[in-house]
């Protein structure tokens, strides 16, 4: 991972980390191979006939990369309509196609958690007791053997 100022800022102060008071939906993205997962909480409001993400938070069992991805994607998602959020997920997944699977896994987990949280909300409009939607990632987070040089 290339460590730049933006990355450090997200690691020092992850945005939107934790649970969310007043949330009305949540969704989970999960790595079935190692137990890592991300849960995204949404507070959705109706604005001009559209469902809009008024507030968002996430928690994760995962590595620093997952936290950075969660911090960045939730920042992007706040204030978006559901259509905007779907576009954000689509754009993220498209970028991840070009990334090695072991690097893509963490961000995919966050994107799928966001997708699941939107789906949970839509289902709960029909059935208030609808369970939390969970999606499993297709990439795998294999720890790479890295050579760390000091030259």
């Amino acid at each position: 991972m290339t460590v730049d100022a933006q990355l450090i800022e997200h690691m020092m102060n992850p945005k939107n980390y934790g649970t969310l008071d007043g949330s009305n939906s949540e969704g989970i993205g999960k790595n079935p191979n190692n137990g890592e997962k991300v849960i995204i909480y949404l507070k959705v409001i109706e604005d001009g006939g559209e469902d809009v993400i008024d507030d968002i938070a996430f928690q994760a069992i995962g590595c620093s990369t997952t936290i950075v991805a969660g911090s960045m994607i939730t920042e992007e998602a706040r204030g978006l309509s559901f259509l905007g959020a779907v576009n954000l997920i689509g754009a993220t997944m498209k970028i991840l196609e070009k990334v090695p699977p072991e690097d893509a896994a963490c961000s995919e987990m966050v994107a799928l958690a966001l997708k699941a949280s939107l789906e949970t909300y839509i289902q709960r409009k029909k059935d208030i007791d609808y369970p939390t939607v969970t999606h499993k990632i297709t990439n795998d987070c294999v720890v790479k053997e890295e050579e760390i040089g000091n030259d």
């Binding site: 991972m1 290339t2 460590v3 450090i8 620093s64 890295e146 760390i148 040089g149 000091n150 030259d151």
Partner: peptide, 11 residues
């Protein structure tokens, strides 16, 4: 430290 070692230590 080299940039690479600094990054590794940071992470």
């Amino acid at each position: 430290l080299s940039q690479e070692a600094t990054d590794a230590l940071t992470l």
